[in-house]
Design a binder for these strands. Structure first.
Lengths: 244, 244
DNA sequence: GTGCAAGGTACAGACCTTGTACCTTTGTAG
DNA sequence: CTACAAAGGTACAAGGTCTGTACCTTGCAC
């Protein structure tokens, strides 16, 4: 009738959770995570379970752990994970476009609903994230503001499922700005967000959906150029099957 | 920084898996599941784990278990789960529209991509499911054909994420045809599918998306009437907090 | 060089999952 | 009406996972 089912271990769940926070930019390179005991309590798990998850992230090159006073768990520059992600996008056929197509489905509808349902408070929240985006002076700040913009849009759409799915899907992509030196794509991206915002503000559902589609297609183009560049900035994997 | 994380037990995962098969119509009222030993092997789990999951489904009124020769696990008429689902949709504010909105986002994009990418084989597969739909003579057959239509569309869209998400979301709704005696909504539904199919066949992406949107809005209307009817066909729960 | 705030390690108890063996119920063939 | 076979029902021991608790080690700051 059907095939296998399995459970994840707590360690895996926690590792995924933390990885997602990093991918979404909630914590970025150089940041320190809370102390183990504290974080374990926040997550409602035993310290050992957390430690195992951190071990995984350490092996994957997401964090490094230092002992002693001023010790703790610090997010790395993410070179290794980015290289592995890039190798995977090149290797696994269709994966890249699959994610982008999915995002388009989710986010165009989100934009549409947001345009129909947004309150003045929603608009204010979105405005703030766009302002943050404009003044962002480094990758981490930019990425975080970007995530927050899409999240505030999803909140304005009043759809918890869209909200959750948008976030999950964003977490599957490293943001452009982790892959490139912090340069020109930025202005285009800021403009895109502005266009979406204006349409949502006006309450023009079709324009909002169209603007969002354009924005994500721009992202597709940018990312594709980086992922499939023949001149690779790859610090690690050659092109082989480093896929986990 | 964030809140709790947990794992599911195998029992929960298996129960969800089986519940989903029932919701999707892969097995319907009166059907018998494979014998415990056999099913456990298919799923790659111990018999005890499966038994615990079946116990859950039994308590929830999805299946009944009979002993002896000709014994086994049989899917019920689903009255209790449907009543509980209905109570929940009435009670949890916004849940109902949340699910429908999400479906619209997923399935309009699916239709759009399917129209752009479908091969002759895809069209043939879709045609088959529509034919099944037309000649379906009972709830179960209808529901299964309906699920299959949407699945074949998602396959034509060549997007594994959309495919998976469409299926998951469909599993969150009991199909209309479990909620009503088998009557008039059917013809409208068949026509809707036909319209979507024609647009996909023609390769008209906008028409396909629009047709799908209309179809799901029709479903919303139908379902809403049933869920929020003041004259309840409720065989079980009054209207109270039977929500699990 | 002492204090202290981290991470590192160890261990026992509770719970989950598995594999295996055996018992009970019940329809039906002979 | 008896015996068989095909199901579910029960029991148990071994191994894995998660938790709580206690204690050790490292290395910065004063």
């Amino acid at each position: 009738m059907s095939n296998g089912v399995t459970t994840q271990t707590l360690t895996e769940v926690v590792a995924d959770h933390l990885r997602r926070l990093i991918h979404l930019g909630e914590v970025g390179p150089g940041d320190r995570l809370p102390a183990e005991r504290e974080l374990a309590e926040q997550l409602g798990i035993a310290r050992l379970s957390l430690r195992e998850a951190l071990k995984t992230l350490q092996n994957d090159g997401y964090v490094e752990v230092r002992r002693g006073a001023r010790g703790g768990t610090y997010v790395t520059e993410l070179e290794a994970p980015v290289a592995r992600w890039r190798a995977r996008m090149r290797t696994v056929s269709g994966e890249f476009d699959d994610i982008i197509d999915f995002r388009i489905g989710l986010e165009t509808e989100t934009a549409r609903l947001a345009a129909a349902r947004r309150t003045p408070e929603d608009l204010a929240a979105m405005r703030t994230t766009i302002d943050d985006l404009t003044v962002a002076h480094d990758r981490t700040a930019f990425r975080l503001a970007d995530s927050r913009f899409h999240a505030s849009l999803a909140r304005a759409a009043r759809s918890s499922r869209l909200c959750a799915a948008v976030e999950s899907t964003r977490a599957e992509l490293f943001n452009t700005h982790d892959l490139l030196p912090f340069i020109d794509p930025v202005q285009e991206s800021v403009d895109d967000h502005e266009v979406v915002f204006r349409a949502v503000e006006k309450g023009d559902v079709d324009a909002a959906a169209a603007a969002m589609r354009d924005h994500i297609e721009h992202t597709r183009t940018q990312l594709r150029a980086i992922v499939f560049a023949t001149d690779p900035p790859s610090p690690d994997a050659p092109g082989a099957t480093t896929v986990s």
